[in-house]
Simulated assay, not measured.
Amino acid sequence: MAMQIVLLPGLLCDKAVWADQLSALGEYGECHVPDYGLRDSIGAMADHVLASVPAARLLVAGHSMGGRVALEVMRRAPQRVAGLALLDTGYEARATGAAGDAERAKRLALLELARAEGMRAMGEQWAPGMMHPDRLGSDLYRSILDMIERSTPDKFAAQIDALLNRPDASALLAEIRCPAMLVCGSEDRWSPLARHQEMHAQMPGSRLRAIEHSGHMATMERPAEVTTVLVEWVQWSLEQEAARG
């Protein structure tokens, strides 16, 4: 079977987060965007991804929480990953002590809001921090609220559990040898560029691309720029795969 390209969405995201990349990347291989269902751990999500795509070799890209799933796919099945792209994401476990407690409290407060007033009401409080301030109130902003509203409080609860108990991938970064691309909105306030620079420094041979005038939702905020970077990554990965024989 030809190479498959796996595009992993983030928290409360679905296929819409990759809509602008799918056609361009589809010229290089079949694209698959998994649905995590009610899986409540990053590991279970990674297992689902590996079970749901049959190709022996995969190109795996993950946005936000999906980047953490991509790293867990790499941990579990490095022999299957021909290329890795991590977008607007992170790699460390939840902090201990007060910082970790504060993260938990904030996430659970959003879940309480979603259960009490609905997913869109929760999204109206949560989404503004995920994109560049210039885009608040735009059609794009409303489309992100629509995407959040398509999810459910039960899915939100499962994904919050997954993130609160996320594995630490720090030790994994130095072991990654496939073509690895790091992508981040230059003004991402959730997963800042500085974090991606740290990852880049720990991943030998990786490439880092900042997407200017973009917040956390870079694939949707600056779709053409992100697509260009991901096409570069796919071509790089395929060249390395061909050299590998």
Rank of each mutant, 00 (worst) to 15 (best):
R177P: 05
L182W: 04
R222C: 14
E239C: 10
M217Y: 11
V183T: 07
E187M: 13
A174C: 13
G185I: 07
V231G: 09
R222V: 08
E232Y: 03
L172D: 09
V234L: 02
E221L: 01
M199P: 10
I211S: 04
G205A: 01
I211M: 00
E239G: 12
A224E: 14
H213L: 03
C178W: 14
S237I: 07
H196M: 13
L173K: 00
L182R: 09
P223C: 09
A210Y: 02
S191W: 02
S214N: 13
R209L: 10
E175Q: 14
R177E: 15
R189L: 15
H216T: 10
A224D: 12
L208K: 04
D188S: 13
W190V: 01
P204R: 06
I176F: 04
L238D: 10
Q197W: 02
T227C: 15
V234Q: 01
W190Q: 14
P192H: 12
E232V: 05
A224V: 13
T228R: 12
I176R: 02
L230R: 15
Q197A: 10
A218W: 07
E225T: 07
T227G: 15
G215K: 07
G185E: 04
M199C: 04
I176H: 04
Q235L: 10
G185D: 06
E225C: 09
P204H: 04
I176S: 06
G215L: 08
W233P: 11
T227F: 15
A210W: 08
E175D: 11
D188Q: 02
C178M: 12
